[in-house]
């Protein structure tokens, strides 16, 4: 099995190595799709947005000076592409369209509940929440990706969490701190 350091791939892809670029895009794809799904709440739209983001990554990689910044930089591109797609998308789509794949009925219902509740959050709350919960990013990292200060992100996360818990009928842990 061929294992390479992602930063080596970034450097190589930036210098025009097509194989390295393919590896980077293949590694980014699942993350980009899930992130876009969390933001757009719609499978096909998320797929389109993730594709848009990957095209942008390929087109702009040469302008990325610091390979260490690649994760935050690529996340920002995905978030921007997904947020644009979410704004273009019709507001009300039937739940069946919301990226649900095959699965057990209960799991499917739970998934639709959660995605539906996420969809009730405005984008400025939904995006940091998805980055925190699904990507495991800290508020500082989210701030870097979104161009906002960490305290602002912490405030948005706390608010988003309260609203999501209310939408799901779950009790939010009162003392939880976001890093």
């Amino acid at each position: 099995m061929h294992v390479t350091d992602p930063q080596d791939d970034v450097r190589a892809a930036r210098d025009g190595d097509r194989a390295a670029l393919d590896r980077l895009l293949a590694a980014l794809w699942p993350r980009a799709f899930r992130l876009a799904l969390g933001i757009t709440q719609h499978g096909p739209t998320a797929e389109d947005a993730a594709q848009d983001a990957l095209v942008l990554v390929a087109a702009r990689l040469a302008t990325l000076r610091d390979p260490q910044a690649y994760p935050a930089w690529s996340t920002r591109l995905v978030v921007n592409a997904a947020a644009s797609a979410a704004r273009r998308r019709p507001a009300h789509l039937p739940l069946e369209d919301r990226g649900a794949g095959a699965g057990f009925e209960e799991a499917l219902a739970e998934r639709l509940d959660v995605l539906g509740a996420l969809g009730t959050l405005p984008l400025w709350l939904r995006i940091p929440l998805v980055l925190s919960y699904a990507e495991g990013l800290t508020s500082r990292e989210i701030g870097l990706a979104l161009g906002a200060p960490a305290p602002t992100i912490r405030f948005r996360l706390a608010l988003a969490r309260r609203r999501l818990a209310a939408a799901l009928g779950a009790a939010a842990a009162p003392h939880e701190e976001f890093a």
Binding site: E47, E110, D113, V114, L115, G136, R161
Partner: peptide, 22 residues
């Protein structure tokens, strides 16, 4: 990574959706 029940539900919902092939 946050591991409370809400985070787990969101993560599970997103990870439960099959990722289409690249």
């Amino acid at each position: 990574m946050i591991d409370d029940s809400l985070a787990c539900r969101v993560r599970a919902a997103l990870e439960g959706v099959p990722v289409p092939a690249l």
